Structures are given as C-alpha cells and as structure tokens.
Amino acid sequence: MNLLIIFTYPNHKSLNYAFLQKVIKGSNENPNIKEIQVLDLYEEGFNPLLVFNEEKRRRDMYKDPEIEKYRKQIMWADKIVFIYPIWWGRPPAMLLGYIDQLFASNFAYKDKKGYFPEGLLKGKSVVCVSTMKGPTHYPFFWLNNSHKILMKRALFNFVGIKKVKFFEFGYMEGPKGNQQKKLEKVYRYFKKIDH
C-alpha cells in the first residue's frame, strides 16, 4: 500500500504536527504500507489561488503542468491521509485550494449523462484527521454534520472514493482534551491498517 499524507497546518510546533508524526510512526511500523509520501502544503509553498483567463481555462485544469507532480502523487497513492484543523466548520482555505485544483474534471471525475459523474479515483481510500477547539460533536449537532458531508459526500464519493474514515478531535486547545490519548489512537490505527 502506498500512503500519501497531505498535511495542512502552518506551525510545526503544533498538535496537528504531532498527529502527523504519529501517522508517520505508525505507518512506518506497518508491514502493509510499502511507501509513504508527505505533502506539507504550507512548507511546499502551494499556491491555493485559482486563476482562470485566456491562457488558463478551467476545463484544462486536469492537464495544468504546474500541478502535474501533485496529480502524480494522487495517482500513485492507494490511501490518502488528510491532516488539518477545522476552522469555521470546514478545512483551511489552503487545503480547499488544493482540492479545487487537484480534484478537477477529467482527472478526478468525468461528466456523463444524469446527475452524477463517473468517479475516476475508484479503489483509493481516505482518512481525515482533524482537530478543533470546540467540542468533538460540535460539527454534528450545531452544523448538521457539514464537515463530514462536505468531505465524504460532496468530494470523495463524487470522485469515486467510497472508503472514508474520520478522526474528528475536539477540545484540542484545552487541558481536558486528552491529547496524548488521541495521538496514541491515531498511531495505533496506522500501525494496524491493512487496506
């Protein structure tokens, strides 16, 4: 199994970075994981801005040479892991900009007759590890589960990825957040996954 980790947080002295280290540690100890690639969007200097003009058209985004290496990473990966905070009920703009550019028509999906397209990323799976300041169940009770609906239904299912696992960790800035316990939970998960 090839594992692509997409890390979206601007501070390497953070809890999110600690989650990244646990994912890497567990994955390195897992004999089912053949190779790991880490894409740190902030460290990479990824440009999340969409630009469309006479030279750069939306319909051609799937073959944009500036993001070819990122498309190759997605195609290479069997499992994609996203690590990010939940800000204002959704992932950071940096990650959404990555999604806007990479999950493009004719790369991630293909339009066809009817309501739904053909997902072109079938067979891959996703794990989302997200942190938030508020309560763990805040997105579910107060935001009608909008985070999971956005990521699973509006994005991953749309492009053919059916297997999506979520770790939504709340109270991460408080003394009662059980941060160490949650870090260990993620580590154990990645140490054992087999597909």
Results as ranks from 00 to 15, higher is better:
S130D: 08
N145P: 04
A18S: 15
A18L: 12
N16Q: 09
A77G: 05
F156C: 04
S146I: 10
I86P: 07
C128W: 15
K34F: 10
K113W: 14
E66G: 01
K69Q: 10
N16I: 06
K191A: 07
I24N: 09
I36D: 00
G119F: 00
R57G: 05
V51D: 07
V23W: 11
K122Q: 09
E44A: 03
Y62G: 05
D100E: 14
G89M: 10
I80P: 06
G123S: 08
F19C: 00
S14R: 08
G119V: 00
Y171Q: 11
V38S: 09
K152C: 03
G134Y: 14
E184F: 03
I67P: 04
P48Y: 02
S14Q: 05
E118C: 00
S27Q: 05
E44C: 03
E168K: 13
K148C: 09
Y187D: 00
P175F: 11
A18F: 06
L39M: 11
R153Q: 12
L96E: 14
L20Q: 05
K122L: 00
R153P: 00
M151P: 08
E68G: 03
F140R: 14
N32D: 09
I193S: 03
S27D: 01
L120G: 00
S27A: 15
F52V: 13
G134A: 15
R188K: 14
Y98I: 04
N28A: 08
H195F: 08
Y171V: 08
G45I: 02
A108V: 06
K163D: 15
A18P: 01
G123M: 08
R58L: 14
F103C: 01
Y189Q: 00
L41Q: 05
L15T: 12
G134T: 15
G97S: 03
L102M: 14
K63H: 04
Q37M: 09
Y17N: 13
Y84D: 10
L39C: 10
M151L: 13
E118W: 01
Y109L: 06
L155A: 05
A18N: 13
L150H: 13
I5L: 08
V51F: 13
T131I: 07
E35N: 14
F52I: 14
P175I: 12
T131S: 12
F190W: 01
K13E: 09
M94V: 07
F141D: 11
L41Y: 07
P31V: 06
S130Y: 10
P31K: 12
S105H: 15
I86R: 07
Q179N: 12
N30L: 05
R71N: 02
K72R: 14
Y62W: 14
V126D: 03
G89T: 11
D40C: 07
I36R: 07
K25G: 04
I80N: 02
G123W: 10
E168Y: 12
N16Y: 07
K185V: 02
A77C: 05
I99N: 05
A154E: 11
G160T: 02
P85Q: 04
N178P: 00
A77N: 06
S27R: 11
E66D: 14
F167R: 09
K124A: 02
Y62L: 03
R57K: 15
F169R: 09
F141W: 13
E68V: 09
Q73W: 11
A154N: 13
Q73L: 14
R188N: 13
Y138A: 13
V129R: 08
K162E: 13
E118M: 02
R59M: 12
K110L: 10
Q37D: 12
